[in-house]
Design a protein around this nucleic acid. Structure first.
Lengths: 244, 244
DNA sequence: GACAATTTAGTGTGATCACATATCTCAGAT
DNA sequence: ATCTGAGATATGTGATCACACTAAATTGTC
């Protein structure tokens, strides 16, 4: 060991520096923001605006936005205009149907996998965290808990490719669900109902009943969808919320 | 009418100029190339290389590639390296399962829609064009006909959102299927079998039997998948073909 | 002649600039 | 007070350059 190494003893304790590209971090950041409901459906965004908010130049944002456009989370609303995918009743209805197919399938797979007590515990934990968040009126935490519950289940379903497609779909419906936060009472009703249905899901997975698992997940998706639709129907009368 | 208008009578016959962005055309071009099998799975690509081949600068290609990365058609194979998504047996198997869910669902929807003689005729026409292409040993045309058949059916299923996701999946499995062209005999066997199965699909749709439609489409997907898998298993012994 | 070290060519990434064209702002006329 | 118009601001798009880094090619050495 020479003097250099002696002076800087045990360099292995150094925290590894983040080696990912700026573009990737911007992408992940925007993705998270969409799922957390920090953007409203139909809201206009600009590359330079996002770049400034994120403290970078325009270039990495440009690449990240291109990816989000491919995922239909962001769309071009004109020749030189970008916006978050707006809420359109019929389109959203269709996405819900696709989600029921895919998430139902993932749930079915998770339920028919070998018995997995760790999974059951994790699901219970997530569901409990939603319930606690609702009691504390922490809507962000409730949203995050719900997401954690679903993806824990789907991850157990087996393959990453399916998870990938589902998460792309959440990127589109995410801002819409999250925007229901504006009606706090409705939001709480949706998620209280969700907690109850999640218990059915957990029961189905514990008993390895794939039909019941699929049905429960589909009920969860559909019932929250119906509430959201009602919310937008009411909102379109007075307040903003639905972008054009 | 003044002299100007008189001199340039009936300006409506002017062909509209292409107003889309370069980026968009590059994206569509790469997309088509992937589906036509002009790229091999695992093949390395470079932004500058594609830009030169397409006669543009790097910038539009960069945006287009970012979109294709989001669709998992292109992936980063290293810190500064891009390649077409390679063939990985287990991953591909998973994609096939997802495709069976979604395309089966789309077929089911198409079959349960109101009776549509125009659709039936179109499907028959596409299937006939595959058969003719195989007779003429025009593999490109057979591939295109197969794609036309499937998407005609799925389009009839109803909603564009589902079509959108399915076409993203084709973008990933497309180069893999297309690369089976290297074994001409196998390729012909796959598609001859396909033509036969397509007739079952047409029959199911004509009789509005959604269960049969779903089963037939799933059989089509699965049986061609099995052949492809065998092809790659054999190819991995001697020739190249599987990248990665 | 075989192998290792070094140079060279090529890569994605990020920054910056120019441009055409949208949308917004605000004065001026009716 | 309302509408019209021009000017100002901001937008995505495309091009170009610099940079850090990788992989291939080339040179030098034994």
């Amino acid at each position: 060991m020479n003097t250099f190494e002696a002076n800087y003893k045990n360099p292995r304790t150094l925290t590894p520096v983040d080696v990912t590209t700026v573009q990737e971090r911007v992408y992940q950041s925007l993705r998270l923001g969409l799922l957390k409901g920090e953007f409203l459906p139909g809201e206009q965004v600009s590359i330079r605006g996002l770049a400034e908010a994120l403290g970078t130049s325009a270039m990495p944002v440009r690449d990240a936005v291109a990816r989000l456009i491919a995922e239909r989370a962001i769309e071009q609303s004109g020749p030189r205009m970008l916006r978050i995918a707006p809420y359109l009743a019929s389109d959203h209805e269709n996405y819900i149907r696709v989600r029921m197919q895919l998430e139902g399938y993932a749930a079915e797979r998770a339920a028919s996998a070998p018995r997995n007590p760790v999974l059951i515990e994790a699901l219970k934990r997530h569901n409990e965290s939603i319930r606690e968040a609702l009691e504390a009126k922490d809507l962000d935490a409730a949203l995050a808990g719900n997401q954690a519950f679903h993806f824990e289940l789907y991850r157990a379903g087996g393959y990453p490719q399916l998870l990938d497609i589902i998460s792309t779909l959440w990127l589109r419906t995410g801002p819409i669900v999250a925007s229901a936060r504006r009606d706090e009472a409705l939001f709480e009703r949706i998620f209280n109902n969700g907690v109850r249905i999640h218990n059915d899901v957990i029961g189905a997975v514990a008993q390895r009943d794939r039909v019941a698992a699929r049905r429960a997940i589909n009920l969860d998706i559909r019932s929250s969808h119906l509430s959201i639709r009602r919310f937008y129907k009411l909102a379109s009368g007075g307040a903003d919320g639905a972008g054009g």
